[in-house]
Design a protein around this nucleic acid. Structure first.
Lengths: 351, 351
DNA sequence: GCCGTTTACTGTACCGGTATACAAGCTGTA
DNA sequence: TACAGCTTGTATACCGGTACAGTAAACGGC
């Protein structure tokens, strides 16, 4: 016995296949009695509903959107900011009934998800704009939204005022009187250890934040010592801080690329017998839930990740609608605010 | 101008549509020279590759598998254990070229992802087995793997020895001499605050761990005080611990459903002027990265989440292969070990 | 009682590919 | 020379639906 399709049911009920299709997809097109009869027989035959793949082909839309994440997916899942963002996206998408497909940039095996998976649109989150995966998405001309990426013409973008936020954070330290400032950052590619600004091959967010810090530090005559690790976990922050603190003239304050790194920095300071903020001020970035829980509570730059997710999801569904309707419309470039949250991990340097 | 399809290219090159299809999907079926010519013209026409939706219909396989997660997806993303698991799954799937589609159980809007999204198989992670979403998946007769769920006949399952692990943890406390033991757990549904075992409507994992704890406590004549919160974050652990510690005869040790809750429990103890482990022993569950970083480092029950992800992904790809080949094969029920890791958060009670 | 609407259903033509069997043109060899 | 055995390319028949343009009958207004 073959598979049960609309035709099987149609034959059995004695109506046309189209009527059965309508029974499932457009209930208002047939009489309730007939519909009930069809549904009953379909159920009896073990029919589950129109085949999604066939429907996708016929309708021209699959019920899913993709999301392209940085490098290895597991890296993204280890990052609290990324997972929070994903959660926000998922929440926004749920009521629309869209599924969210994680696209790996891994192209091994000859399969390229960005090219080979059916979807109605995609989010591109903090990816290398030169990567082949992004290129495929662009070539498919599907509705896209860039998040935390260098904005591109014709593609809606959602970003955060990273540069302004970073500048405010650095200015805060300058205002407190710090003149020896360290920076702890991370990134897989490029040099590690003590680096100079030119050594950094970071994504858009990384370079924006660095620019912001320098925007405030340079006019104040401060040239920061920068320690850079491959990863962004607390352990890496610990290592980077040790490097900075072992210098002949150690910094009195450290700006971190993330709250996770800042956690490690604080631990390193404590282990080195320094107290925060008296001996060392520490500033994080993102205002993750952990930031407020730290002791001392961490001064950091807050970004509203849920708002970012909301905006991204909205922009995507809107782009999909527009594409379906044939009305491209202009690609909006959104920029969400970033706000300095002063808590207890920063103070003036010891006299 | 319409869309570019295989036919467009075929007409332009002067070959049959099938040959163009082969140029993309089965390069060994035509001469390299012709293939190059076809590819060149396809590129010139802006053809991106075979349409995934059409290919899915014709081939009978989409390049994606689904994953059904507990309740709201954002809840899952806030849970470090779940995200680590997702990362592990994603990593396992990447080399196979399969995309991973997150299925929301949200059925609002008339769209049910579990029924309406095209996929080759699905993982069901810690879901209510009675939920309609799970039911749809079962009815679609698609290859499934149940993870952290009550195993079902005919469906491959991956579980952890939660009960045995919990028993070992509770036994550890009993052996140390504790006789007043508290339990901190969480779950959205059911009663909250101080509860008795019967009040808990928890998932499989929750009830397994509880059973394990009781397996060791009951024979020792210990009947634990149980505090239950809706959520599983540190803040909830804090609240639950306050409840337990404010009792007339507060516990000398607390067993927690997760490391995240344990973090809050430790904070609450510290804030109450108790030192861990001298005044209060605390045991977590999962051995998340944070457990070893806590101070004191947390005694906990370790489960290998990467192994779980690996096993689940392997079971699913295997089930998909089997289904494709028409060889159902028996559904294996795997159970991964759980191991007590004794660190510094447990000690004998004060004399 | 006539005519314009609505309701309920059907027929046909796709959506954009892939599997499979088959035909034609070479090659090698007995 | 004749025949088996590749290599290349083609023709046909689906995969399982949906859109859209009918058509026939029931409905309603005057």
């Amino acid at each position: 016995m073959g598979r049960v399709t609309l035709q099987t049911i149609a034959d059995r009920v004695g109506v046309s296949r189209m009527t059965v299709s309508n029974a499932f997809s457009r209930p208002d097109q047939l009489s309730p009695t007939l519909r009930d009869r069809i549904l009953a027989i379909a159920d009896e035959l073990g029919y589950v509903g129109p085949d999604p793949a066939a429907r996708a082909l016929a309708r021209g839309s699959t019920g899913a959107v993709g999301i392209l994440l940085t490098e290895s997916l597991s890296g993204a899942f280890a990052d609290e900011v990324a997972t929070t963002f994903l959660g926000a996206i998922a929440d926004e998408l749920a009521p629309t009934g869209l599924g969210l497909t994680l696209l790996s940039t891994d192209t091994a095996g000859g399969v390229v998800p960005a090219r080979d998976v059916a979807m109605d649109g995609a989010l591109v989150y903090s990816c290398d704009p030169e990567s082949t995966a992004v290129d495929w998405l662009l070539r498919r001309k599907m509705p896209l939204v860039f998040i935390d990426q260098v904005p591109a013409d014709g593609v809606p973008a959602v970003n955060v005022a990273d540069r302004a936020g970073a500048r405010t954070a650095a200015q805060h330290l300058v205002d407190l009187g710090h003149r020896r400032v360290g920076i702890v950052t991370s990134g897989v590619r490029g040099r590690h250890g003590m680096v100079s600004p030119g050594d950094m091959i970071d994504g858009y967010v990384g370079s924006q934040r660095l620019s912001g810090w320098l925007d405030a530090l340079t006019p104040a005559g401060v040239s920061p010592a920068i320690a850079r690790e491959p990863h962004g976990d607390p352990e890496s922050g610990y290592q980077a801080a040790r490097l900075l603190l072992s210098a002949p003239e150690p910094p009195t304050a450290i700006l971190c690329f993330s709250d996770a790194l800042a956690q490690g920095v604080v631990s390193a300071a404590v282990d080195a017998g320094l107290s925060v903020p008296e001996d060392l001020s520490v500033v994080g970035f993102d205002d993750s839930p952990a930031a407020a829980r730290m002791r001392p509570p961490l001064t950091t730059v807050r970004q509203d990740i849920h708002a970012k997710g909301h905006a991204a999801a909205a922009a995507l569904t809107q782009a999909i609608e527009a594409a379906k309707a044939g009305t491209p419309g202009p690609a909006e470039h959104l920029c969400l605010p970033a706000e300095l949250i002063v808590r207890a991990s920063t103070a003036p340097p010891r006299a």
